[in-house]
Design a protein around this nucleic acid. Structure first.
Length: 264
DNA sequence: TTTAAGTGCTGCGACACAAG
DNA sequence: CTTGTGTCGCAGCACTTAAA
């Protein structure tokens, strides 16, 4: 068992090795003051990661400066579009498969799972699964795009570790912040809000983020700040208009593919 | 009266795990 | 090794109540 954990050693390892190392160190963290047992591991991971995060961010930022910096808008644009293009391609493939799957279900209709299947409404049943699936998958896309920034750490991508209630860790105003990243301001449904507050409140500098400044807030807490859209992306030195444009192209491409499949 | 906030309900996909 | 099942996190919508 190593005695201390520093960013420099972590950076030389594979994701899997990082995970093991962090797991081992997490065992030593005291959690007796955390009431909710379900959040014990989340608290441990938070502690470990916040201890190495400052150096980790410094490294990422230095590395970014050395290479082709994302501060260059054309480079940033290139990085974003590679994500959105890939997303569109993958999703359209999924769309085709989903249409076929739904056709098969409607032909045999063994056990209808919802009203649309029961009634053989092919386009409606597909629309239902398409919008839901699209929303969910895009949630991950925002994380991937944000991860382009050296001011961001996604624990899952970087360490292979999921922290309950934490999607993203970011460095801004000289602080390491633990946050949830959602699509819209109103993404969280009523019953999910108290849980989100609870999960965030055990970490230092919690933050609630909506990737887009759309809808109305459903998250409201006196101690946990919230930010949306451009304000967020600027904090991690990314250009909001660039992102919006690439996402617009992506969704229009997907929309077109959906229309064509529906017309068949 | 209109607007905002709070709550409960729904379905889909990813994942873990057990049963076959 | 495959298949079924349960849990969790993702999303949107309807409704009620309180505030402006």
């Amino acid at each position: 068992m190593p005695t201390e954990l520093v960013a420099e050693t972590l950076l030389t390892l594979s994701i899997q090795e990082r995970k093991v190392l962090i797991l081992n160190h997490a065992l030593l963290i005291d959690v007796t003051h955390i009431a909710d047992e379900d959040l014990h591991t989340a608290y441990k991971y938070g502690k470990i990661i916040s201890s190495i995060a400052p150096a980790y961010f410094q490294y990422q930022i230095a590395q970014d400066n050395q290479n082709l910096s994302i501060i260059e808008l054309d480079i940033q644009s290139e990085l974003i579009s590679s994500k959105t293009d890939k997303f569109a391609d993958n999703f359209i493939e999924w769309l085709k498969a989903d249409f076929q799957k739904k056709s098969a279900i409607l032909e045999h209709h063994p056990n209808p799972r919802n009203l649309f299947e029961l009634c053989g409404a092919k386009l409606l049943v597909t629309s239902n699964s398409v919008t839901r699936s699209l929303s969910t998958k895009m949630g991950v896309l925002w994380e991937e795009i944000a991860n382009i920034s050296p001011y961001v750490i996604i624990p899952e991508f970087e360490f292979g570790i999921k922290i309950t209630g934490i999607d993203i860790i970011l460095f801004s105003e000289e602080q390491v912040k633990f946050a949830q990243l959602k699509t819209l301001k109103g993404t969280l449904t009523g019953s999910q809000v108290p849980r989100a507050k609870h999960e965030l409140s055990i970490h230092q500098n919690p933050l609630f983020i909506a990737a887009f400044n759309l809808g109305d807030w459903t998250f409201n807490d006196s101690k946990i700040p919230r930010i949306a859209g451009k304000v967020f992306w600027e904090k991690i030195h990314m250009d909001y208009n660039l992102i919006e444009n690439h996402v617009r192209n992506m969704l229009q491409k997907i929309d077109k593919a959906f229309t064509e499949l529906a017309a068949k």
